[in-house]
């Protein structure tokens, strides 16, 4: 069964074509890609979420073309129904429902979080159920116990800033531009992660919740003090020490969650899952604890259509369908 998936929950408009039977991705297109801008007349929008309505057609066309598939061959439509900006979600969701309605195809609405939870299943080496999933991005930092392709329960989440957001805000503080998460990680490679001891928010012994707002403030206070004294900032050390504080909490809590679940498998998802330091330390921890770690490639970590196709395929098999008048939602029932 060929699945066409559409995702428009935040900045990017994304589409994918997925072969359900073979469980292979035939195309995975994101609006920030160069091909799309070429198609779009070379205009790079200031804010992509403003442009979903202009991006949706070229992105879907590009996905079908790259897959070498015509719309006639598509048998299932899947789209992100929430969470996110309702105005953005409705562009992709309404477009998807319209395609399905005219073509007489089944249509499935998928939770964006489910996409990230399942994204490691897009790779050759995929976790068996059950597993513990850490979804970590600019908008979310959550831990889930994954019982099957359609059953997940939340074990913890951020109480304030998401991990990716903390990276972006520290980048801004250090005047590295915004969004600057990847820049912080790159600079951290040349720094000493033990140079500065920034606080780790554990939030109580058994808590699987996260908090990164205090860490952001601690970095800020540290930087302000040095600036006031007129001392030079060792940017690489600050980046490395900050990153270490984030990663250490993520790794420890994820391993604790797996242990609490008696799971032997951990899967990562979300944009920050492609952070190299997180991958390295998580792998080390898993080796130590006898756990298997599954991490999707970067293109499946960031927001993408492939994960929505996969989640849609699973939800379809579980009998889920949308009605034509179903609405998008802003808050995830999963989170």
């Amino acid at each position: 069964m060929l699945i066409l998936a559409i995702e428009s929950s935040c900045d990017d408009t994304a589409a994918a074509v997925f072969d359900g039977k073979e469980e292979t991705v035939l195309a995975n297109v994101v609006s920030s890609q160069n091909e799309i801008h070429a198609r779009f007349g070379g205009i790079v929008p200031e804010l992509a979420s403003r442009c979903h309505i202009e991006m949706i057609w070229p992105v879907v066309r590009e996905a079908l073309d790259q897959a070498g598939v015509s719309l006639d061959e598509v048998q299932l439509i899947s789209a992100t129904q929430g969470p996110g900006l309702v105005g953005s979600l409705l562009v992709g969701f309404t477009f998807a429902k319209s395609l399905a309605m005219v073509r007489g195809l089944p249509c499935v609405g998928v939770d964006h979080m489910a996409g990230h939870i399942l994204s490691s299943m897009l790779e050759q080496e995929r976790p068996e159920y059950p597993y513990t999933a850490l979804t970590v991005s600019g908008g979310n930092t959550s831990l889930f116990s994954v019982a099957s392709a359609v059953e997940y329960s939340r074990m913890g989440r951020t109480r304030d800033d998401a991990a990716g957001e903390a990276f972006d805000k520290v980048a801004k503080l250090l005047e590295l531009g915004y969004p600057g998460g990847p820049v912080v990680s790159r600079l951290a490679e040349d720094g000493d992660p033990k140079a500065i001891t920034f606080p780790r928010a554990w939030l109580g012994k058994d808590s699987l919740d996260f908090s990164f707002s205090g860490l952001k403030t601690a970095v800020m206070n540290y930087v302000h003090k040095l600036r006031q004294k007129g001392e030079p900032l060792k940017i690489a050390d600050i980046c490395a020490s900050f990153q270490e504080a984030v990663v250490e909490v993520l790794v420890t809590k994820t391993v604790n969650a797996a242990r609490a679940n008696s799971h032997t498998r951990i899967a990562l998802g979300g944009g920050v899952a492609s952070n190299q330091r997180l991958r390295t330390l998580m792998q080390q921890a898993c080796d130590r604890e006898g756990l298997s770690l599954f991490v999707p490639r970067p293109a499946y970590c960031t927001d993408n259509g492939a994960m929505i196709a996969l989640a849609g395929w699973y939800h379809y098999q579980a009998g889920r369908r949308v009605e034509w008048d179903d609405d998008a939602y802003s808050r995830s029932p999963l989170n």
Binding site: S98, M101, V102
Partner: peptide
Amino acid sequence: SFTGLRIGMAAAKGIAMAA
């Protein structure tokens, strides 16, 4: 209403592409 217009347009585009 920008949100209203986008929904109408998303539906119209989906129908036009599908048909």
